[in-house]
Amino acid sequence: MKWFQFFSLGLLVTLTGCASNSADMDKQWLNPPMAVPLQANVQYEIQVARLSQLLQRTDLEDNVRAKMHFERGSYYNSLGLRDLAQLDFNQSLQLNPAQSVVFNQVGQYFTQIGDFDSAYEAFDSSLELDPANSYALRNRAIALYYGDRLPLAIEGMTTYYKENPTDPYRALWLYIISREVGPMEASITLEKRYQARNDDWGWILVALTLNNITEEEAFKAVLAGSRDNTVLAERLTEVYFYLAKRHQIEGQYAAAVSMYKLAIAQNVFDYAEHKYAFLELTKIFEQVRAEQLQKAKEEQAQKEAADSES
């Protein structure tokens, strides 16, 4: 992203000040737990090449061509080639606009780039075509959250949560959104849901968010439950994202930025936590910039008041 280099440099002084108050954290993250970043899946690349060849044929019916564009776009998505995926999804919809799953993918793309109005339109189209599309319901609620339309975001995520109250990820996202309007109530509610938890791995993430377990305990759980490097990368992506969110909520921006970068570094392109880590970094940038501007205004006002008194 264009702002990323400026972001890293412009906030260095501010974030260094935050980090200097936590020497223990600096020591802790000298060697953060990492998986080998996921590499491009050779089978996906082969499928992209095969579909590209098939799409050159002139005798394909529109519905078949639309399906091929969607399939190739899905492979591009999994390879981290977001813009190429979007091109294929758009072509698929031009050939066959009655595809709820494709509109959902398009909506996620617009959310990632911050074009929230287009994201809402895409998710609305997805749900009009298939009201039972839970992924579109969830992703629209998340887009509404990042677009600062909190009442609608809470309403949508509440509906999504009620479809499966035992799902820790639904409980976690409902908490993340709800705490924007009622932090204490959201924490109490999430704690109650955590106490009634099942054995799903995701409740570890809830416990980490609630500070019910230490970071060391969370990483031990990751290592104990990871069968291979892929699972390890996936779970570390989740842990780093929600740990970053906790630090961000607590105003520990330096730690949050580091955690979001570690979530991105695992290369788990299909995971929402990877996709939305970029948006969270943007939010921190905007929040810190706003705080710096407000501080500058206050200092200027104090200076002017002092000058007038003298």
Rank of each mutant, 00 (worst) to 15 (best):
S74Q: 13
E155R: 15
L12C: 10
A272Y: 12
Q53L: 14
Q266S: 04
V222S: 03
F278L: 08
D130Q: 06
Y253W: 15
Q28S: 10
L127D: 02
S92Q: 02
R235W: 12
S74N: 14
S178H: 12
V222K: 03
D200T: 11
E128I: 07
V257E: 01
Q195P: 06
A256F: 01
F123V: 04
K275V: 03
A122Y: 02
H274N: 11
K275F: 00
L51M: 07
S74I: 10
A35L: 03
I154W: 00
H274R: 11
A186G: 07
R289I: 10
L205M: 08
G73L: 04
F110G: 03
L11A: 06
I213W: 00
V42P: 12
L150F: 06
Y160G: 01
Y76A: 09
Q292C: 04
E61F: 07
Y271M: 13
K275C: 02
S226G: 05
E280S: 03
V231S: 13
E217C: 09
S226Y: 05
L223T: 10
L12F: 09
R227F: 13
L60F: 08
Y161H: 05
Y169M: 04
V42N: 14
V106R: 02
Q91E: 14
L236C: 03
A233K: 04
G202R: 01
L190Q: 04
R179Q: 10
Y75K: 15
Q5L: 13
V239W: 02
L60V: 07
Q302G: 09
E217M: 12
L293Y: 13
D199A: 10
C18Y: 11
L87W: 04
A207L: 06
E121A: 15
S100T: 10
A119Y: 02
